[in-house]
Design a protein around this nucleic acid. Structure first.
Lengths: 184, 184
DNA sequence: TACAAATACTCATTAGATAAGTATAATCTG
DNA sequence: CAGATTATACTTATCTAATGAGTATTTGTA
């Protein structure tokens, strides 16, 4: 039989849209497209969204019920299952591993963490700082042990160091701001 | 007939492997896999490489001739066509548009620019600095005009600013080093 | 004689992404 | 009341990217 695959990553973010209360796909798409929200970092087409939601459902993280309304076409509401809940929480707590994952995935985590409470935000940031500090040290070691006749490798490592330092500085700022900003 | 598509981007980098002298696919793959070279930023599987080379050939940027050798299996040498030459040079001179393109595409440009001469490197860096400075200003304007009730958008913009500033600092450093480092 | 190395591929599959279209009921507008 | 628009839910076809796995050929080497 075919090995089952499910290295879910960013699509787990979608679970955040049904966390507080069930939602239907069309609505999720609307919310995603609001340009000052997640849509800033994730432009997802409707067709793609449907595909991702199906995978999440197949994995048992979502369930759908059809709600026939009186005055409107019936909605296929999506609920988070217990398993989905667990997976989402774990996803939200985990720092990302690579610099390249910040632009989309970490920002998505942050977005949904803000919809929970302050502590969730604080913890996410702190864990990510920790992970990034370690990564930075590893880069520093690598950089120190570089033979000087490898100019390209040197440039690459320096680039990565720079990006990561900037990320850390930004994380510090996030931590400060989330400390004072009161969410709703 | 189907609209022809060819938004070539990073695959144009492959032309750099046949720039100085023709090469055969197997050799290109070897060179790509050298871990201190382009392989640092671009891990390309053999099957994928063949696919990309075919597209470049179909576009008229590469031509192949079979060189039957005396003692070895025949090599399918790939040459750069005049058109390929032109396209490659243009690619090499163009700065990248987005921050996310640095990790792979800009580093690849830099890699091949180093195989040309010092001036190519200097020009590439200077153009990229210029483009990035403009982008940074645009971000700054955006940031200044942000209503303060958009915390998420603010974070996103600040993140991008930070990354871009780090990139610019790194570019400055590259410029300095390429000034003194003599390439072979 | 068998195997390894150099060389060049192919195929099947999955995933990611997008454009475009279909369908249906309700509600709004002239 | 007709016709347009909106809300809602999908499907299909297509393309690209990526990967794993395998095949084929020629020669040199053990």
């Amino acid at each position: 039989m075919p090995a089952q695959k499910q290295p879910f990553t960013i699509e787990l973010a979608l679970l955040g849209f049904v966390r507080a209360k069930p939602a239907h796909p069309y609505e999720i798409h609307q919310r995603l497209c609001e340009s000052r929200a997640l849509g800033l970092v994730w432009q997802l087409k409707q067709a793609h969204l449907y595909a991702l939601l199906s995978r999440l459902e197949a994995a048992g993280y979502l369930e759908r019920t059809t709600e026939a309304q009186v005055n409107r076409p019936p909605r296929k509401m999506l609920h988070l299952t217990a398993q989905g809940q667990a997976v989402f929480t774990r996803w939200l707590d985990e720092p990302v591993a690579h610099g390249r994952d910040f632009r989309l995935e970490f920002l998505a985590k942050l977005f949904f963490a803000h919809q929970e409470d302050r502590q969730t935000v604080a913890e996410l940031i702190e864990r990510q700082r920790e992970a990034s500090r370690e990564r930075l040290q590893s880069l520093a070691r690598q950089s120190a042990s570089l033979p000087s006749d490898q100019p390209f490798e040197r440039l690459v490592v320096q680039f990565r160091q720079g990006q990561l330092e900037a990320t850390l500085a930004w994380l510090d700022q996030c931590a400060q701001e989330s400390g004072k900003a009161v969410k709703r």
